[in-house]
Each structure stands twice: as C-alpha cells, then as structure tokens.
Nucleic acid binder design. Structure first.
Lengths: 149, 149
DNA sequence: ACTCATTCGTTTGCTACCTAACGATAATTG
DNA sequence: CAATTATCGTTAGGTAGCAAACGAATGAGT
C-alpha cells in the first residue's frame, strides 16, 4: 500500500483503471468460494434475468467478444451450469440455457449488487451524473479513434 | 455497435469498465505494429523515465502483482528490450535495465499521451475534478472491503 | 440456381491479471 | 546466535480479454 502522495497526481484514466480493478477484485473475492469468475457470474446473471438466449444476443448485450464468450461458455458448460444447444432456426447459432445445477448455484450466490452501492452510495446525484457524462464522452471519443471495421 | 438506448441506463461502474477497455483497446491497437502490449509499454515508460530500477519498486509504482510483473519482465527480456540482473545489495532483488534495443524501440514508438488528451481534452477542470473524486472515493471504499493481508 | 458476402462460433496464439505455493534471502525476535 | 518471520521473484494454474483465421450456414444479389 502506498501512501496518499503516490496517488495524488493520477490521471482520470489512471483512476478509471484502479476503480475498475478494485470492483473486479472484490467481485472475484466474493465469488471465489463458489468457483466462479466475475464474467461467468455476469453470464449467469443474464440468463437468470432473460431466460434462454441465443449466444450472439447474449454476447452483444454483455459486450463480450465472440472469442471471449466462446471460452467462457465452454467453461460454464464444463461446470454444468449452462447448456448449449443448436438453435432450430439457424444452425449457426447456439441457444444457451441455465441448467438446474446453474439455477441452484445462482440461489446460493451472494447478492453482489451491494458492490455498486458500497462504491458509489451516498455520492450526490449531480456528481454521479457528471462522472457518467465524463466517462461516456471519453469512451465514445476513444471508440471513434479506434479503427472499426 | 448498439444504439444509444442500450447504454442509457448503464451504471457508473459499467461506464468505468467501458472507458477503461476503450482506452486499452486504442493503446493496444497503436502498439500492435511494434509487437508490444500496453503493460509492456508501461514498464518501458517507467524505465525510460526512472532509469534502472529494482523490480519490486517498479511493480509497486505501477501497481502490478509480483506474478503478473514476473511474466511481463520475462517477455520483455525474451524480446531483448529489458535486461534483468541480480541486485548486488540484496540477492532477492532483480535490477531492471532498458537495453539498447529497448531504447531504440522507445524512440520509434508513437507518443501515446495523446490518448488521454483525446479522451478527456476540453472537459472542464471542475468536471474532471469531480470525476476523479468520485472514482477515487469508490476505489478506496472497495479496497477497504477487500480483505487485505 | 449460382456466386459472393455476411454471420456465427470455434480455434489458435497471445497479453494481462490474479491466487497460492515454493525456494532463497534478509530482517526481526528472543 | 538460532529460530522465526518477512520479502522477493518464479512457477503453476486459472480467468479474462482480444486479433486473426477458419469452416459451416445463411443472406443478398443477379
């Protein structure tokens, strides 16, 4: 742990990174006893809230690259938390379904929504709105600079 | 790409994640032609600015886990960009030095400081200060919740 | 009906991050 | 001075992210 003076001159970008990693670390810590990664949790969360979903739709909703998602789904299938079947309509697509094991695990998982409250609770709506505006603007500018195909 | 309505209700945490990944993606894109990862660049940046450094000091300064840094240094040594020697005083420690090849590469690398300006340039000092305050506060609260040894 | 373009998911290869454990070395304690 | 604790860096094993390429299936255009 470094003292305050080490972080005094960190940029917005640096704080964005630190904040993201702090939230992720806490999530990973709480999920570790359940042998679940934070993105694995995110996928289960989506299936619990949206029901069986086409893999591509889920990937778009959670903003996960196809290669990334493919690996995560493989892990969840191996853990028998998710079932992956062919979609009848379009043989290119896969349908993802929460298994009974997955549902049982979900019921045992701690509620992680406290993390966001713990991080940002009590901060004024105005300050939160400003932060969102700044991060949103920055994200969009950066994505504009990325050469998208 | 999803339309605006998909991002309307994203939380601060979600925007923090998106912003971080957008910056990282841009950095990785610009560095790819030089066969350099963004954290590898960060290590070179530190050595250029601070001179030869003890590995642990560098790790602390850049907030990298020992295992993470060990792997990154191994990659930079394999690429002959960094030399890793024993520190005379303390045989547990390693001294990291930029090689001539590393210095030559650094001179050829594009200046990436534009990324921060591109992301946050033109935003009022007050808004930036608010964003930093919010992210800093959130980070510290999350780190407090993490069980640190 | 055929050709070409696009989409979907996987695989390969890589970077980055992290926990836990280990061995070697140094610091601390009694 | 010996025993214990702490530190440093590596290794093992895992999660997560991404680019690029591939094959199979579907859609678009003629």
């Amino acid at each position: 742990m470094h003292d305050q003076s080490d972080t005094k001159n960190l940029s917005v970008g640096a704080w964005t990174k630190r904040c993201y990693f702090a939230g992720r670390a806490l999530m990973d810590e709480r999920l570790r006893p359940f042998d679940l990664g934070s993105t694995q949790w995110y996928v289960l969360w989506y299936l619990v809230n949206n029901g069986p979903s086409v893999q591509r739709d889920l990937g778009r909703a959670l903003e996960l690259e196809r290669a990334t998602l493919s690996g995560i789904i493989a892990t969840l299938v191996r853990k028998d938390l998710v079932a992956q079947t062919a979609d009848g309509d379009d043989q290119r697509q896969r349908l993802l379904t929460l298994t009974a094991t997955g549902e049982a695990l979900w019921r045992r998982l701690p509620d992680l929504s406290f993390i966001h409250d713990a991080a940002f609770g009590g901060i004024s709506e105005a300050d939160l709105a400003t932060t969102i505006r700044v991060l949103k603007s920055a994200t969009e500018r950066l994505q504009t600079l990325l050469r998208k195909d």
